[in-house]
Structure formats: C-alpha cells, structure tokens
Design a protein around this nucleic acid. Structure first.
Lengths: 357, 357
DNA sequence: CTTGCGTATGCAAGCGATTACATTTAACTA
DNA sequence: TAGTTAAATGTAATCGCTTGCATACGCAAG
C-alpha cells in the first residue's frame, strides 16, 4: 500500500530508487555518458540488471525528439532483388548505429498509404522508398512530412527528390545488342503492366534499340505481374498470341524463372528453341536451370548509396534532388544462344499437343 | 516571437488551437470516439488536414501503455518458407488492426540479441520467434519481459511456452517411405549443422526410419548452411565423401535448389541418376527444374496459428504452454524416380572429369 | 579559511499523446 | 420556469525518458 502509483518498477524511477540516485543519473549511465562516477555507474547497472529493466524506446524517442530508425518501403520483399537491397541498406544502417523498420506493400497502394502513415507516425529519421506504386499525392504527403527520403527508381521524377536508379537504358541496350549479335530477330519483352515512368521507359528503350539495330526485326510487348507466377502467366499469353519469338526478354530475373517453367512445361527448350534473359542477376539466376543470362545490378551498392544519402556522413556527399545512376553489366549464362531460324516454338507446341509436325 | 515554445505546431496542441477546442477533444476525434459533436469533429479534422498533422505514435504508445504492434523475429527472411510465414502472420495481423515489425537475424545470435532488445524496448504486444538460434538465456530474458510469445519450432521445448511446430517426424517418414518404395537404398540427409533440438530430431527421425524400413540400407548425414549456396556446398561435400547416394534428402526446398545446381554442374541427372527431395513446398519448388518432390507445410496456417495464439480471439482458443502440431503432406513432382542400381554418380563424375568410364 | 573551479548529481520542465474526472451545455420533463 | 439528465467539452495528471540548469561536493590555490 506504500507505493500506490507505479506498481511496475521497471522504469527509470524504479532503477533510480533501487540504486539510490535520481533518474537523471540513471539516464546518463544508460546513455554512456562519461560524466558518471564509476561506483555510481556500477550501482545503477546492477539495479537495472536486477530489475531486468529495458528502456522504453517510445519514451526515449519522444523525449529526444528524434530517432535513429530508418524506414523502408518495399513493393515486393519476396522478389530477391528487393530483398537484397533491403539487406544491404540494413547492414549499412546497423554499421552506423541505425535501426530499420521495413514495410512490405505487396504492390497495393492501400498498404502503401497505411505504411507511409506508420512511418511518419513513428517519426523515422529517414525513409527509403523502393516502391513502384507511388502516386503524386503520396509524394506530396511525404515531402510535407519533412522526412528525408530517397527513392529507388521512382516513376515520376520530380525536382528536389533524391532518386537512386539504374541506367536501365544501358542495360537494355546491352541485352538487345547481345541478342542481335546472336542473330535474334523476333524478340518479346515481358514487363509489369504499369504505366509508371521507369517501366514504360524500359519498354520504350527495348523497342527503340531493336528498331535501331535491326530495322526489320519484330518486337512484341507483353504485360505481366511480378513474380514467378506472373512470369509463367505472361509466357503463356505470349505463346498463345501467335508471335513466335526467338528471344524472350524479361523485366527481371524473378519473372524469368516463371517463364522458364512454362517453356519447359510446353516442351520448348532453352536456349535451343528460344533464348531467355532476365534482369537484376539475383542469386537464383545462377541456380535455376538453365542458368539465366541477365544483367547484373549491384544491389549492395544501391543499398549503401540509399543509406548514404539518407544519413549524410561528412555533410558532404549528400546529393539532394539528384539522380544517382548505377551502371548495369551483362552476365552471360546458359539461357541464351544463337537464334534458330525455323519456327521452333510452333513445332514444339504442335508435337506437345499431339498434332502432326 | 509570440509563440515561444512549440514552434512546430504539428501536434495535438496545434490542431486543438486551430480548431478552437481542447486537446482532449482532438484526441477523441482522432480515435473515432462517437462522443464528439459532428460539427466539432469536422472542424478538428479540417484543422488536422490543414496542418498535415500525423499523430506521433511514440507518444500514443507511451500514453496508452500498450500497443497494437507485433514483433517477428526471423532467422532468414531470404528463405521463402520463412517469408511466407511472415506474410501470413502479417496479413492476419492487419486484418485485426495490428501492425507488425520484423527483424531478420541472419542466423546471427548477436543480431538476435539486439533484435530482442529492440522488441522489448518497443513494448510490442506480442512476439513471434521464428528463429533457430535461441538460447536459454535469451529465452529467460523474453519470459521475464512478460511479452506474450509464440515460438515456431523452437529448439528447447520448455514448459509454459507456446510452440507451433510441424510434425517433422511424420513428414520425414512419408518421404523415406516413398523413396523406399522406389527402391532407394543409399540415402543422404543434408541439414543445418545445428545441435539444436528440432534439427537433430530430424536427423534422428531420418536415421530411424531408414533403419526401420530397410535394415541394410545405408544412410549418410551432411551438415550444411541454409540457402542456395549452402545446398550447393553440401552437395559438393557429399559427392566428394565417396558415399554414392541413390537419393538426397534436403532439410528444406531452398537448400535443395542449391543441390540441384551442383548436380547439374557435375552432369548428374535428376532423377535418373539420383533422386532429390526437399521440404516445405515453397513456390520455387514448383518452378525449379526439375520440379521438386517435397513435403508441403501449410505456412499460411502456421502464420495464422501464431497470430491466433499471440492475440487470443474469444479469450478461448489460446493455448499457452502447448505444442501445436501441423501436419505435413507429401507432394511428388519430378525430382524423384526409381532408384538406379548402378553406381550412376561415380560414372558421371568420371566421364565429367575425363577419366575412363 | 575563503575562493574558485571542475566534477558528479539532482530538480524539474518538457516531449505528444490519452483518459479519469470535472464542468459546461443542451434537451427534456414536470 | 426550474429541475433532472444526458451529451459535449475541458482540465490536468500521467506515461517513461532526456536534458538544461542549479546545486553540492571535493580539492587545490590564494
């Protein structure tokens, strides 16, 4: 009955009382300030230990008015490419004493909205947006929030926005040139059916490059959802469209693995009958079968760059409002080969369905 | 100079002043309490909107003394199996108005320790531990913290601990029986080199089942790290050990994909020369080549079960201190076949290395 | 024995919300 | 019109921590 209030002593007060000091001193000990006498420090630590005390981080953030927590928004954490960026960013953050909270939006703009609300509510020290479903309204909300923010490959490039992105044009050019050198003339591009900037830019680059290199080559576009299943579905659509590609270019490796699956189910051999390429060079690209020819994108560097721009190091290398380009590199593996001149796919499909070849 | 303090008006006070009400009223509006007159509510909302106000969630948690945030600890988010559990848990949580923060420990106990510290510091409403590196000390810290906690397949089963786990014995039995029915006599098991409970139990079950079914069959154990690379490395070790398996059983699908890669590199055909099985039935198991024979584990249900036990619904179905078993089911795909009687692997290796067959 | 000064600690005012309780306003009832 | 009651709002304490400022301590110099 003595201690009416504060039944739970696992707070600064409890520790302070037990150690016979004031809360201020306890706080100073816990924050490693060197102003506390060693004997006091020891008593405080002992008391904290005995009470199994853990500081309340909400109270701390509130009192400090700032946190060392970074937020990450990701469209699809299941895609190893995004996961790798997240991991690199996180480890860079940890190395500098920052925590990280991540929200997976699953390509849903509703989820994105509520995640953004959360991040702002948590007053994160910075925000990395690796999402494709960002609209201008949300962008406004974010800039209004005054939270430092770095985008990865954002759709609508605006002024005063830091944007780390890959030079997709260059990567796409390398792939198309490579396929062209192998004699491919009918190529299909499988990508998200998004109307957003970068995606449509990729489509355009594909079409332009094909047109430039081989004026009388044919090019086809297929819209697809991200992921293994999305790739498989897109491949299905492509094949039933009547277009007979000699090469299929996928917007990313993850999707390409789905494409490979469908081709295999149809008895179509890669790269003998058709070549397939990905983009990103995720680990899986090396492990799937056939191993994917793709374009390497340095996720590690991207993650580090994002962090570096969120939490400026020497106050020097922060590049607000800039676009930071990352160069991709071609990686040739097993899924590409010289173009077959005959209509390989059609004949495979015929024989698979029992029709006369 | 008029407003000395509170320069930033984006807090309850700011909104209150602007709407001409008290902070209490603003708070009531924001928490959807129906006690506020409509006209006032409208004024408050307008003020909040104009100020672009977002409640400070730290202050809220602090004041409320409890949160609707759940913590998840995961050893390896890169493994799609864990990712799926996380996703299921998260969507169950969202459906009931809970938020989720996830910490990826990367199998490092240091990271686990600091993640646990974080979760306790955040006073999460509950904690899901999907980690294999949990030691008894940390377990103590967690129980001391009074945070409701549910483990997934924890190593050291203790009293008073809720543990959702898969009936691995049953799954393992199904696989071994199936392989046995195909005539396999030399089987190798590739699993983490952990001394923890569930893993060693799996090993034991494997050995026992093999011994029971085919007394004169041979069994081999290989330690491996998780992941694609871990699987590949384990396969390498296995093959160079001299043991000539007719079947390779992997502790999970993710690792199995790595195994497939190495076998392919060595010119060993699956399932003609050797059969390979996984465990988990991740989506990739269907998409890799050959598609994996595996055991399906219902991640969705696991996620939901974990959530249900963290946040009891009707105060009824919470099973504290219990073990909740989930039944696995065999899924036969392309990576298994009847056992070859000749020493297939050895001859492939010879021919691959240019030696006389 | 003061004075002075660095060092170690305590006091108390925030941080931005929630909420029990008090108070005012509005709406009926008699 | 006064009386009773419910509805709407305000007051102020509180959550657990940080931190500027004040205070107390100890010890060397004057």
């Amino acid at each position: 009955m003595a201690q009416a209030k504060n039944a739970d002593l696992r707070n600064l007060d409890g520790v302070a009382k037990r150690a016979g000091v004031s809360t201020a001193t306890v706080s100073r000990v816990l924050n490693n300030q060197n102003v506390v006498k060693n004997s006091t420090r020891a008593r405080v630590l002992k008391a904290a230990e005995e009470l199994k005390y853990h500081p309340n981080l909400h109270a701390r953030s509130l009192a400090r008015g700032k946190s060392r927590t970074l937020g990450i928004l990701v469209s699809n954490m299941e895609n190893p490419f995004f996961f790798d960026i997240y991991r690199a960013l996180e480890s860079a953050a940890h190395a500098r004493g920052y925590e990280v909270v991540v929200a997976n939006t699953d390509y849903s703009s509703e989820q994105l909205v509520s995640s953004v609300r959360l991040m702002i509510g948590w007053r994160v020290a910075g925000l990395a947006a690796i999402v494709s479903e960002m609209d201008s309204h949300l962008m406004q909300v974010l800039t209004d929030s005054k939270i430092p923010i770095v985008f990865y490959d954002v759709g609508t490039p605006q002024k005063n926005i830091t944007n780390v992105r890959v030079d997709y044009r260059k990567g796409m050019k390398k792939i198309v040139e490579y396929l062209h050198s192998l004699g491919h003339t009918r190529m299909a591009f499988l990508g998200h059916h998004s109307t957003l900037g970068p995606i449509s830019e990729r489509r355009k680059t594909f079409l332009e490059t094909v047109a430039r290199l081989a004026p009388n080559a044919e090019a086809q576009i297929v819209a697809a959802a991200d992921g293994l299943e999305g790739g498989r579905q897109a491949a299905r659509e492509l094949l039933s469209s009547g277009f007979q590609p000699t090469a299929i270019l996928c917007v990313n490796d993850f999707m390409a693995v789905g494409v490979l699956r469908h081709l295999r189910d149809q008895g179509i051999r890669v790269p003998d009958d058709v070549s397939v390429t990905g983009f990103d060079n995720i680990r899986l690209a090396e492990f799937c079968s056939p191993a994917l020819t793709t374009v390497h994108i340095p996720r590690e560097r991207i993650g580090q760059t994002i962090f570096g721009n969120l939490v400026p190091d020497k106050a020097s290398d922060r590049l607000i409002g800039q676009e930071i380009l990352v160069d991709p590199e071609l990686v040739v593996r097993e899924s590409t080969g010289v173009a077959r001149q005959t209509q390989a796919i059609e004949s495979r499909q015929r024989s698979a369905s029992g029709l006369p070849v």
